[in-house]
Design a protein around this nucleic acid. Structure first.
Lengths: 175, 175
DNA sequence: TATTGTTATACTCTATAACTATA
DNA sequence: TATAGTTATAGAGTATAACAATA
């Protein structure tokens, strides 16, 4: 077992943590977008490693979660939930269907929509994916400590909603 | 306040903040990769809005910062610092050169390398970009509060280094 | 008219291989 | 042989427009 270093977090003060390569990253380490992007890339790489046995991408996994927890949604609704354009969700849904994880059922009321459900095989795969992804979370927790880990979610979710309402800055020139 | 335990416990309370659309996002809101990705997308969109007057992308901005703070680096070194493949950095560097922000100087010692420097126009543009990007940071700070904002950097930088050393998990089957 | 699923398409990012000129 | 800059290329991811079937 790797030693659980629960030292009181580095505290960030004046010696702000930076990236390797010994260069001056100064303003960048204070640009949240840059730091979040670098973290996201690293986390996805780590995710691919942990999930490699399951051959599942982050996007596929997120779609399976939404379908598993909200059975019967239409493709458009699932795409909206994931903030994916419905046109781009077609290939993703088809892939999941061809792998036998997802079924598209015709709906009585509306002949245009297709209701998405997990197949029995999909449910089985999903429970394994849930276990693997939780294993991945554990790796991330160990990397940064449980308090820091837990503290990240709320602010990041709020950041994800930045822009949600606003569209036009101070001075707009309509026309 | 959540008690600081380092139990492998799932903790995570019950009322975790989630995304809009009223659907059940349950495991996803506990998947750091998903939350970080959604935040990154929103922050970049916000960045594009704030920086629209300067017509600069996050990647271009990050390159300008590295060149401004570390004058004389070769293209390969700048690309490495930004975790961009040197092949993909060519177009980026060329764009910055054509806009008159960056100059590529031949080096006396090595005829292969090109040393990158900001031009006077580049330095002028950079100071304006610095102002605008700081303005953007202020928006993000206001969105989530300054304490949460400040607390994000250190753990995210550490997350960005996940994987940096390790390549093979516990059980590997070489060949 | 509006909406669902779909196709086609384009544009950006990213990853790999290979070339050239130097070293 | 190795390295810096470059080209070409292929693969993802994403965005828009448009279409047929249905509402």
């Amino acid at each position: 077992m790797p030693k659980t270093s629960n030292l009181p977090a580095p505290a960030a003060e004046e010696s702000r943590e930076t990236f390797d390569s010994g260069l001056d990253f100064d303003p960048l380490t204070r640009r949240l977008g840059y730091v979040v992007r670098r973290a996201q890339i690293a986390i996805f790489q780590s995710f691919f490693q942990t999930m490699s046995v399951a051959q599942i991408s982050p996007a596929q996994y997120s779609a399976l979660v939404i379908i598993a927890r909200n059975p019967g949604l239409s493709q458009t609704r699932v795409a909206e939930a994931l903030a994916i354009k419905k046109a781009n969700f077609v290939a993703l849904a088809r892939e999941l269907e061809q792998r036998g994880f997802v079924e598209r059922r015709a709906i009585p009321g509306d002949k245009r929509s297709l209701a998405l459900h997990l197949t029995p095989a999909g449910k089985l795969a999903y429970s394994e994916l849930d276990r693997l992804s939780e294993e991945h979370e554990a790796k991330l927790r160990e990397a940064i400590g449980i308090e820091a880990y837990e503290a990240l979610f709320a602010p990041l979710v709020r950041l994800a909603k930045v822009n949600s309402g606003e569209a036009s800055p101070p001075d707009q020139d309509p026309d």
